[in-house]
Design a protein around this nucleic acid. Sequence first.
DNA 1: CAGTATCCCTCCAGATACTG
DNA 2: CAGTATCTGGAGGGATACTG
Lengths: 119, 119
Amino acid sequence: MSWTESKQNRHPGNYVPKQPLHIECSIEKALDVIGGKWSFLVLRELFGGTKRFGELQRNISSISPKSLTDTLRHLEENGVLERTAYPTVPVTVEYTLTPKGEDLHRMLKEMKLWAAKWC
Amino acid sequence: MSWTESKQNRHPGNYVPKQPLHIECSIEKALDVIGGKWSFLVLRELFGGTKRFGELQRNISSISPKSLTDTLRHLEENGVLERTAYPTVPVTVEYTLTPKGEDLHRMLKEMKLWAAKWC
DNA sequence: CAGTATCCCTCCAGATACTG
DNA sequence: CAGTATCTGGAGGGATACTG
């Protein structure tokens, strides 16, 4: 998908950090996961438990199916959620946070605390 | 600046959250501050102390003056850094984190911890 | 030195329509 | 139901040249 590629290009290759590389790389990775336009809204839904495609689409009312798919794929590729398809007719698909995804809660909480304090 | 407006539009108005509004609004605000393409690289420079425009431009080697200006303005508008101009010839301008900006450190640390654990 | 001012162009987001 | 396919506008960002 183009999103992944473009996000990786967000900081052009000729930037050479002077401090240990893993610092900003890891921050960049975290931003890559939650920084997308819809990512944290989807994550927020899933913190409330497993959800299906249609539920997500309804709860995040202005999202298009394309954007939702893109977001879900991106989150899945990053291992923060899991997609499960059941061979019913019609098909049933569920999205659930992985432990890695659940663990994002601490990060988001800090963001919330910061904003609560300063905004 | 168009950036500010566009960022505020990132979540279209017709999305109506079902849980307390301040939760995702605050997360959104935090993301608005650090989520920009260059934001956290600039912030990272400033965590190391006050810097001048030219220093920032040199240290973040691939950034254009336009993008650097945009990023600095955006951060200034959000109150995380302060711009100080000294009437020397030629002009001297310094950028320093505000307490609000310094306080972002906790957030970024959590992001780093998450990535260190899972990536 | 620390920016503006333009131009240009890529490329993603959203809308819409369609389908296994 | 849970997505793809396709088209599109317009913002975002780089390059370059210029300036108080």
